[in-house]
Design a binder for these strands. Sequence first.
DNA 1: CGTAGAAACTTTTTT
DNA 2: AGTTTCTACG
Length: 738
Amino acid sequence: MSLHLEHLNPEQLDAVTLPDGHALVLAGAGSGKTRVLTTRIAWLIQSGRVTPGGVLAVTFTNKAAREMVTRLTAMLPVNPRGLWIGTFHGLANRLLRAHHQEAGLPREFQILDTQDQLSVVKRLSKALNIDEDRFAPRDLQRFINGQKEEGLRASDVPAGDEVTRKQVEFFAAYDKQCQREGVADFAELLLRSFELLKRNEILRQHYQARFRYILVDEFQDTNRLQYRWLKLFAGAETRLFAVGDDDQSIYGFRGANVGNLAEFEKEYSKGKVVRLEQNYRSQGNILDAANALISNNTQRLGKNLWTSAGQGDPLRVFEGESDADEARFIAEEVSALVRGEGGARMRLSDIAVLYRSNAQSRVLEHALFGAAIAYRVYGGLRFFERAEVKHALAYLRLIANPSDDNSFLRAANFPPRGIGARSVEQLQDAATRNGVSLFNAVEPKSKAGNFKKLVEELQIETKDLPLPEMVEHVIHRSGLIEHYKNEREGADRVENLEELVNAVAAFGQDDRNPEPEEEITPLVAFLSHAALEAGDHQAADGQDALQMMTVHSAKGLEFNAVFMSGLEEGLFPHEQSVMQKDGLEEERRLAYVAITRARQRLYLSFAQTRMLHGQTRYSLASRFLEEIPEGLKKWLTPRFARQQRAMSFESAGRKQSQADRNADNKDTYFPKKEAASSFSRNRDTSGFRIGQNVQHAKFGAGVIVDAEGDAGDARVQVNFGKQGVKWLAVAVAKLQAA
DNA sequence: CGTAGAAACTTTTTT
DNA sequence: AGTTTCTACG
């Protein structure tokens, strides 16, 4: 048979062929997790336990979902369109499309991505005269998403204080607005489909009876709502199979709850846990480094990866004078690897450069470009997020759903048609007054009226066109192409618009996309796709290229050689994260993910100075670097270089102008650890320092994020996570080190 | 209303 | 540094 069960190790085989019952699989990095998951689905189908239609498989990224479908269809002759394999959001969308009426949504409802959602929040906040200094749109957005991810509607949120009351009020207004426009944000997709099934017993029974096996990948990244969502799909006969790795939980910032793993074990698998601890990916030194690093975390379920591969090379460590220096090193080393120096030749696509934040890619790109190395950047500004593409999509969305106010505002005066801020304001007033969409509030004999007419004409003209021709027509008829052609630097944008036509054509031909639900037009299907999958479409050109991405987007991938760059305090771990409860542990897990991407070679690099937001930051090496035992590392730069270089910096500073020298201290960057030092001198009396974990009788566990005052009346600011951030007087609050 | 240039803001990770 | 938003003027 084509399942190749004989190639599995005993634990893997155990997981794949688990008899009836729920199960939790704790799968370490590189332990063959995806393989187990897909082989189990194939095994379930082949052994006649279930038909393809009875399987629900949930992954976290679109990439992972596609990978699973590809592998599965290679093992078994199944029609991929009949499979319910996808991301939580993708599947939720599929469900809502199929039952839009029961869910209270228009058939052509549109999906708001993060940007779109923020626009709605901003617009509404203006309309409601919200004081943006007290309630920043971003914070309101985060509040709404946070509540939805906990499964709460505005009416479910207890509003203890005035601030919360205001937020809840806004939350309610926001949902009402979205409903009026016929749009749904990411969290709404989940919550709405959850409520649908919860409320509608017939539907629930239908799906519970249908899905006999539910399999979930990356379970550690699920939030509370997603867990409840899964439980709702599981009927009495349904068997749940969850695969996860608590050490790779890196989405806490978006509401992921690692606790779901333990919860699942208690509720479902009842102690039945399969551990996959043999790593087939990395050589010994790399794995040892990962294990050593992660052992610094306290909140772990416990697991140690091992490999039967040899130790391999040591980890190569490079210290650069500057970010540009670091980038140059990476470019040179990549060239050397490709030439085959120091071992087997590598292809560019076997090599990855990873970084903590997207902003870091720029310097790297510059160096790679200079060295004529082909590269591909994943993430960052995605294709469907580019302004010109968003504009084109706005026209398409209006054709599908004219009530979409976001799209109306984006398209109405772009290209400019004399509909200025004034007219828009009047329109919005009229719309609010009559409780209708902007589109419906338009006066026929105005400039906006002409725009409305344009949209209506487009609706008619494109009605019977195939999707690619429709898009082609729209980008011309809207005037977008014309507009960008006349713009000085518009050539790229014209190209992207033409690329959009290709993307549409490719979408229609990709049979891994789920079967369109009845009555859903190809246009609506494509628009959902564009919102849910910001477009890693660039993979189309098969050119061999260096892979560049954030550590987050590298999860689940592996490479022969990995460059982990920017290992600096304040960057990795990120300074923002140190402020968050359990933030440092999450950063460490992120570093763990990065390390375990590498098969043979791992480079760790950092820079003494880095340009960030127009300022030079002076940084120290990341603590994570120190947490990796010296015996595993090989320094490519002398370890005492830092002091020497620091001295030469000082002498360089002498050449600065008088004014610069006076301002010198202003742009000197101190990592949090250092900034806390003046405070930590008071340790004897206060006993605490920034970044420290503490325990409070009432608020529970927290982390100190700021401090002020000295010995006698020292006060500390503590982030208690969900309990909020509080200033506490050290003398009064009985804080305990935790 | 539209534009150019100035000022202000950003400042993590993503479905 | 790069991007978005504001302001002044044609």
